[in-house]
């Protein structure tokens, strides 16, 4: 039982990561691919934040009467990673808009066919 209590969080997070990863590699629509990338990354962020959690700890901001704080380092790393994620999303979406304009479609198999024709 303690085994499950110790790890349940990581296991569900792994499931979420893989759901996102599956959307990325299986989706044919490019917008959906980007949504998948975001879900994948957000789930990885949850893994990091889980690492920093201390049972009965509180948010790492000094307050009176609190002695146990959760680890601030993973929080900092993930703040950076979230920003990186949104930056990638913006560029990816801009590419999609251009692809739509150039090819008239955002379905991967359709523009692949058009690429091969050239």
């Amino acid at each position: 039982m303690s085994f499950i209590i110790d790890y349940y969080n990581y296991w569900i997070v792994v499931f979420l990561m893989m759901a996102g990863f599956y959307i990325v590699i299986s989706a044919n629509n490019l917008v959906k691919k980007v949504v998948g990338l975001n879900i994948f990354q957000t789930s990885v962020f949850m893994m990091y934040i889980s690492i920093g959690k201390v049972t009965n700890g509180s948010a790492p901001i000094v307050a009176e009467g609190i002695t146990t704080y959760s680890n601030p380092l993973p929080h900092v790393l993930i703040l950076t990673a979230i920003v990186v994620g949104v930056a990638t999303t913006a560029v990816g979406l801009a590419l999609i808009v251009r692809i739509k304009r150039a090819y008239g479609t955002v379905e991967e198999n359709e523009f692949k066919d058009k690429d091969d024709l050239i």
Partner: peptide
């Protein structure tokens, strides 16, 4: 075609 190439690169690179 540079657009689709860049998008594919972006997805693979981000993974």
């Amino acid at each position: 075609r540079c657009l689709t190439a860049a998008f594919r690169y972006l997805v693979m690179g981000t993974i």
